[in-house]
Every structure is written in C-alpha cells, then in structure tokens.
Design a protein around this nucleic acid. Structure first.
Lengths: 160, 160
DNA sequence: GCCGATTGTTATAGACCATTACAATTCTCC
DNA sequence: GGAGAATTGTAATGGTCTATAACAATCGGC
C-alpha cells in the first residue's frame, strides 16, 4: 500500500470504488454521496500535484487566499476557509514556520495582525498554483472542456 | 452559535461562504475546491435530514449498503466505503449496539461473519432513506430537474 | 499438508478542528 | 468621555475520525 511519511497523510489513499456486484441502492441518486466520491477522486489529483510538499488542501487554500489578499486578518481567513479562528491561527503559524508568510502590524488596529506572503512564499505559491491547476485539469480531462465548465457552474450554483 | 449535543458533531456547521471583497484567485477555477464547497453545502442537507438521529454520512452509507447487500462481509463493506477494515468493524459495532444490524455466521467461511439488518434496522433505514433523499432533493432544488440529472452524470463520470 | 493470503479484531497513534477562556484593543452609544 | 459590548489573536483542552500495525483463526493453492 502507498505509504506516506506519517505526518500530513491524506485521509484516503485510493478513490472510493464502485465495486462490481454491489447494490448501491439510493446512494447513486444522492447528490451528496456522488459529490463525495468525486471529491475524493479530485483530492487524489491534489495530492499528486503536491507530492513531497507537506501541504494539505486547507493549507493550500490559506496560502492562495493570503497571496491574493495581502494583509488579511486571521478572523477573515478563518471565515473564508469555513473554520474557527483558532484553526486559522494554526494555519498561520504553520505558514510562518515554513517561512512562507509573516504577520505584520496593521496601522489602523492594534489587535489585528495581518498576514502577508514572504518573497519565498510568493515563489512557492505561484509554483504550487501552477501544479495544482494543471493536475486538476488533467484529472478532470475525462470531461470535455465544455463539460468541465458546465460542472463548475453547476457546483457554484449548488454551493450558493 | 449553533451548538449540538457534543458527540457526533458535524465538522462544519455552516456553509463555506463566498466572502464579498475577497479575491479567490485560482480557487474558483479548481474543480477540487468548488467540489468541496458544494459538498459542505450538501452535508448540511444531510445533517438537517438526520437531526437527532446520532447518524453520520459513513454510518448512513454503511446502513444502506448492508440493507441492499445482506450478508456482506466487513472487508467488502470497508472497500465500498473506502475505509480500512478496522473502520468498517467499528461501524458494524455501532450498528449492532444500536440494534440495527447483526453479525451472522456464514456457512461457507468460518472467518467471515456477514452483516444483516435487523427488522428494526430495516424500518429505520427505510425511514432515513426517505428523509435523506427528500432533503437532498430539496437542497439541490436550486438546480432544475434537468440540471440535477446532468450534475449527477458529470460527477459520476469524474469519479470514474 | 504447508505457506501465503484473507478475515475479523484490538490497541495505538496522529491529524484535524471546535470549544472555551483570556487579555488587549476597539467600537457603540448614551 | 466613559462604561459596557464586541472583536482580535492566542493558548489549552478535548473529541472524533480513521489509519496503521500486530495478532489469531481460517481458508486456498499447489
């Protein structure tokens, strides 16, 4: 089996299969279940693209958001990620320890810190974005370009 | 905030929002990210449908699979769910403790047990299925019937 | 009949994340 | 202008989920 260097192991190393001879009953009519199977499949694409990088989807998302919104506060970061403030803080700690981001005082407010990518962070995030996007496209190449666009639109409509 | 009776708490109580004024950069072009947002949204539908039932998506899936495939072994169950055998066993323990399923010897093989729904399990699972399906449809009603079908097809094609 | 594979099981450990509480600071509004 | 409410980041704690590893019993192929 495909072992990983213990920390930062993904939850699933293999896609959720559709086992032959098994009756899936109502599951195949549920958007929720089908969504999850597709998500696991695409998670593998992400894992492939970031192999050896000690990164996870939340970390990647945090890096991209900080890169595109320099000086964002940790509460706002948590809100965007859909996690609690304490979780956003741990992500920020991680980014800082890796030298990818820094906290800087913000002039207006002495409570809020404001997170910024470092120069090295900018470089690495740009590289990651290229790789993740390429792999996401490659893995979803089972769909044609039109289908891919339509899927994105449907998903966004669903997520509101 | 919306508190729940400590055990069996869902991971996310609120949808992942699209915060106004925030630049999402490449995220909005990633199937993986968009998929996750949609999945969280639909998870809330599930949570709504099973409120007060001490159930989770893996538990529900296990119950449905056992119901539709009586006598399935725990290894096969784990494979269908995409989890390790040990996890399938704990799910089976849970179903048994709740009186929803039972392990029975299977004639051919004295290693494998074979899981079956109890009469009460049959009843409860039927009820759950109705509720979950109804809520899944309700929550995805933002899409028209045709869009919903197309989304299902695209997701299945993606998950392979 | 023996060796490898498979099944269920148990124990352990780690990742992830929410909750709670706290101090510092800012905001509200009278 | 001042008191109380709200917000920010932080730290400590705990719970849930699930994989990993090791084990005994059993089966299958040769």
């Amino acid at each position: 089996m495909n072992r990983l260097p213990s920390p930062h192991r993904p939850r699933a190393l293999a896609p959720i299969p559709h086992v032959a001879g098994v009756d899936y009953d109502v599951l195949d009519e549920l958007i929720g279940y089908t969504l999850r199977r597709a998500q696991v499949a695409m998670f593998l694409a992400f894992h492939e693209a970031t192999r050896g990088l000690e990164i996870t989807p939340p970390r990647f998302t945090a890096l991209v958001i900080v890169g595109a919104n320099p000086g964002i506060g940790q509460s706002a970061l948590g809100q965007v990620l859909g996690i609690a403030r304490s979780g956003a803080m741990m992500l920020t700690d991680w980014m800082e320890q890796r030298g990818l981001a820094e906290r800087h005082q913000r002039p207006g407010d002495r409570r809020a810190w404001g997170v910024y990518l470092t120069a090295r962070g900018e470089r690495e995030v740009a590289r990651m974005k290229r790789r993740v996007l390429a792999e996401d496209r490659r893995r979803s190449a089972k769909l044609g370009a039109g289908e891919r666009r339509r899927l994105l639109a449907l998903l966004k409509k669903l997520a509101g």
